[in-house]
Design a protein around this nucleic acid. Structure first.
Length: 429
RNA sequence: CGGGCUGUAGUGUAAUGGUAGCACGAGUCCUUCGGGAGGAUUUACUCCGGGUUCAAAUCCCGGCAGCCCGACCA
């Protein structure tokens, strides 16, 4: 993409009405725009990052056999009344409104009840199980206090998956399988080292613990106790001698850390389906309630956590798997015909080699472009200037490394053209 | 929902109760081009409503908005 065609611009200063690192950097660099407290727009660069995260998540969901859907944001009050969760006393994050005829509607803060209601009408026999469905959907939550930039928003993008099983065994097996899939996702995104499966208190319908995926992050909202050797953690809310013993461990093995919840999985058992009247006819002809488990990942929150975790004093450092572009091509003398035509040539070559390239073709000063590139955080930077042309080379720099490296400019037919670039890309996060 | 802090051009900031200024940005022109270049010129601002005062960005009251701490977070 030509940077001159990008409508967003970086700001010289970070906004003063934001304290959180993620919002300051993402706004300054033009990834998001603030609409209101806890409400942000995704700009071209931000949307690219979100879409890449989304793609990674999507692939794992498909491997699990889940079908993608998209449910409505406007929700039926009657469905939520079945579980008693329409009342503000039970759920304090509802946004509600009315149709012109005074019918009350809710804005989806979750889709558990509506999805049960929907799947119920398609699954009447044991032959119709299991069913796995997921969606990427904006959730609306009337938080009394939005905070931490895009970590805790009033409107945010979430991937939610729901598994409907005919038996407890199937449900638990899928729960386990999904846990592994989630770990793979966080690994792929670049948060593998700092993300812990964390035991937390169960939901309204579960006796046992639920599991959270917590990424170690100072600006996170949760306190967890981490066992680094076993690569697991326990949320503060259930951290006590009794529970730790139950898990067969000792409290001295745990370290207190701050973390951000990037995923959450829940086993509802049959409780919720019973409340909603979701029964099916089993092999033996008897009526049984379906088992439900749900699986969430905060997609936009992940972008915020990545920004918090991967940044230096110059700007963002995107892991290569989620970066808006893989290569940032900088032409330092855009008005010099010789230099810019060479840059254009390389831009095309890189694209033909299969890379997503942001080409800074603007008529700006060298320093301006270099600083901008640091702020945007694209993993690989290639610089073309009069200087590099003289040396018949160009400079390539890995954003997360301090030392700048120079490599020779291979011809586009050269075998090692792509391999060389790839080897540099592999050095990034 | 309790508490604290803060609202000045698009952005960032100044202004004892007394002429609202500066920088960046944006527009035009010229010179520049390896870490946010220089000159000339143009452009744009006191959150809203009330009060005190000869006079309010400044003091008081109310609203709205933003951030932070706590509570909450299925």
């Amino acid at each position: 993409m030509l940077q001159s065609q990008l409508f967003t611009k970086t700001k010289r200063q970070a906004p003063t009405d934001e304290i959180s690192k993620n919002a300051r950097l993402l706004i300054q660099a033009g990834f998001i725009n603030k609409e209101m407290a806890g409400v942000y727009d995704l700009l071209p660069l931000g949307l690219r990052v979100v879409n890449r995260i989304r793609k990674i998540v999507s692939e794992e969901m498909e491997k699990l056999g889940s079908e993608e859907i998209s449910m409505s944001s406007l929700q039926n009050k009657e469905i939520w009344k079945k579980t008693g969760r329409w009342e503000d006393k039970a759920v304090d994050v509802w946004f509600k409104s009315k149709f012109k005829n005074d019918t009350e509607v809710g804005f989806g803060w979750s889709h558990e009840e509506p999805i049960i209601e929907m799947i119920k009408s398609y699954a009447e026999s044991y032959k119709d199980f299991p069913r796995y469905v997921h969606q990427f959907q904006n959730k609306m939550r009337n938080e009394v206090r939005a905070k931490s930039g895009i970590i805790r928003c009033r409107e945010f993008l979430m991937k939610d998956m729901y598994a409907f099983c005919a038996s407890e065994e199937d449900n638990l097996a899928f729960y386990k399988k999904s846990t592994d899939a989630y770990l793979k996702i966080f690994e792929h995104i670049g948060l593998g080292d700092i993300t812990y499966v964390t035991s937390a208190s169960g939901g309204v319908f579960t006796d046992k613990f639920s599991h959270e995926f917590q990424a170690l992050c100072d600006s996170g909202e949760d306190i967890i106790y981490v066992n680094k050797n076993k690569k697991i953690a326990v949320n503060e809310e259930i951290y006590n001698e009794e529970n730790i013993k139950k898990m067969g461990m000792e409290m001295k093995d745990f370290e207190k850390r701050k973390a951000a919840e990037v995923g959450n999985i829940f086993n509802f058992g049959t409780g919720k389906c019973e409340q909603m009247g979701f029964y099916f006819i089993d092999k033996d002809g008897t009526k049984k309630p379906a088992h439900l488990s749900s699986y969430g990942i905060g997609i936009t929150r992940l972008m915020g956590v990545l920004t918090e975790v991967f940044a230096d004093d110059k700007g963002i450092i995107w892991p290569k798997e989620v970066a808006p572009f893989q290569i940032h091509l900088l032409c330092l003398q855009q008005d010099n015909q010789e230099v810019s035509s060479k840059a254009k040539e390389l831009y095309i070559d890189l694209q033909e080699a299969g890379y997503e390239v942001l080409y800074d073709d603007r008529s700006e000063s060298a320093g301006f472009k270099l600083r901008d590139a640091d702020l945007l955080g694209v993993p690989l930077r290639i610089v073309i200037s009069g200087k590099t042309l003289e040396k018949e080379s160009y400079e390539i720099k890995v954003r997360c490394l301090k030392d700048q490296k120079i490599m020779p400019l291979p011809k586009k037919d050269s075998i090692d053209f792509k391999a060389t670039i790839q080897s540099y890309l592999n050095q990034s996060i």
